[in-house]
């Protein structure tokens, strides 16, 4: 079992499925799946529309450990209906976060002096285009409930987002991801609100050519998001690297983790607005102009640069570090 866990660690996060990611993000042999395939909680809506179903409705939820912390894990499966949030999928996601802060409340009630490094944490591997259109009302509601849960976690349970799957994290879930305490991405990860295809459809190919993947990544990809400060840690594409990144965040005090948030306080909003004002000033025509503005004169070379060289040399926007 543990040798198997070892193999998972070296595996590409991008290539792995949601379950392998969930198992590999927890400590060896500690992951227990909740509401898994055995429960057969598939979508009640998709069959009526003649669409395929999945026993886990496209999300793996469960509990494991990270060091001395209980780790509540959700991992979306991008290959099933684009990782979209339907009713069951959403309920599983909302409830795994709810379980985390309920566990926190219980544990603190029992042991008021519980050291920080033993308190629960949440990690969500986002791989989703957002709401599942076939069951959009329930899916949207789940987005709102999830935001609520994040609020309930505030001051108690750190919520960490991970983005490294092929689908990326788009649509309403782009907002949800932005509301987490910290975001870890690989260069293959993508984060945004409106998906590239939708922008092209609405605004035309001249505005945004979704088939130009280099452009798509310059606007939504891990490296760009790291420079912008929309992601806190950029890691290699292995399960181990994501796990180490998670370890880095969870080794911090809650106060330190809270400082990683990109939004959520007046100061943060002011800082974002200052950056925005500065960017309007330079009127960028491409992400590369923003990178140059951030202090990277050879902006074009950043795209193909190896990750460790990138992390060593890149300059981020002022409010990013």
């Amino acid at each position: 079992m543990s040798s198997d866990w070892e193999t998972l660690q070296n595996r590409s996060f991008l290539e792995s499925n949601a379950r392998a990611r969930a198992i590999g993000l927890a400590d060896p042999g500690t992951f227990t799946e909740l509401a898994g395939p055995r429960c057969r909680l598939s979508s009640p809506h998709l069959p009526l529309l003649g669409e395929a179903v999945e026993f886990d409705d496209g999300i793996v939820t469960g509990v494991g450990r990270h060091g001395s912390r209980p780790l509540f894990i959700a991992s979306q499966e991008g290959r099933f209906v684009g990782g979209s949030v339907g009713e069951v999928h959403g309920a599983k996601l909302v409830n795994i976060v709810r379980m985390a802060h309920q566990a926190y409340d219980r544990m603190l009630a029992e042991t008021p002096e519980l050291p920080e490094e033993r308190r629960p944490a949440v990690v969500i591997s986002f791989e989703t285009g957002g709401v599942r259109l076939h069951e959009a009302n329930a899916g949207l509601l789940a987005h709102a409930e999830l935001m609520d849960q994040f609020q309930d976690c505030k001051g108690k349970v750190p919520v960490i987002g991970i983005i490294g799957g092929r689908v990326g994290c788009f649509g309403g879930m782009g907002f949800v991801a932005a509301a987490t305490d910290a975001i870890i991405m690989s260069p293959f990860g993508r984060l945004g609100l409106t998906g590239p295809e939708v922008i092209e459809e609405e605004m035309g190919k001249d505005e945004f050519d979704a088939s130009d993947r280099a452009l798509v990544y310059r606007v939504t990809g891990g490296k760009h998001k790291y420079i912008m400060g929309d992601c806190n840690l950029l890691v290699e594409d292995t399960i181990a690297a994501f796990r180490q990144g998670l370890g880095k965040v969870l080794a911090m005090s809650y106060a330190e983790i809270d400082r990683l948030r990109r939004i959520g306080s007046l100061d943060k909003v002011k800082a974002q607005l200052r950056t925005l004002a500065a960017l309007v000033e330079i009127a960028p025509r491409d992400s590369r102009d923003v990178w140059t503005f951030a202090g990277n004169p050879a902006a074009e070379t950043l795209v193909d640069m190896k990750l460790d060289d990138f992390l060593r040399t890149v300059k981020r926007l002022e409010n990013a570090s």
């Binding site: 092929r166 260069p187 293959f188 088939s211 130009d212 993947r213 280099a214 452009l215 990544y217 990809g221 891990g222 490296k223 795209v303 193909d304």
Partner: peptide, 13 residues
């Protein structure tokens, strides 16, 4: 060794 320069539509980074 970095010599292949894939067209934009094939990039995923």
């Amino acid at each position: 060794g970095g010599l292949y320069d894939p067209p934009a539509r094939f990039r995923n980074w």
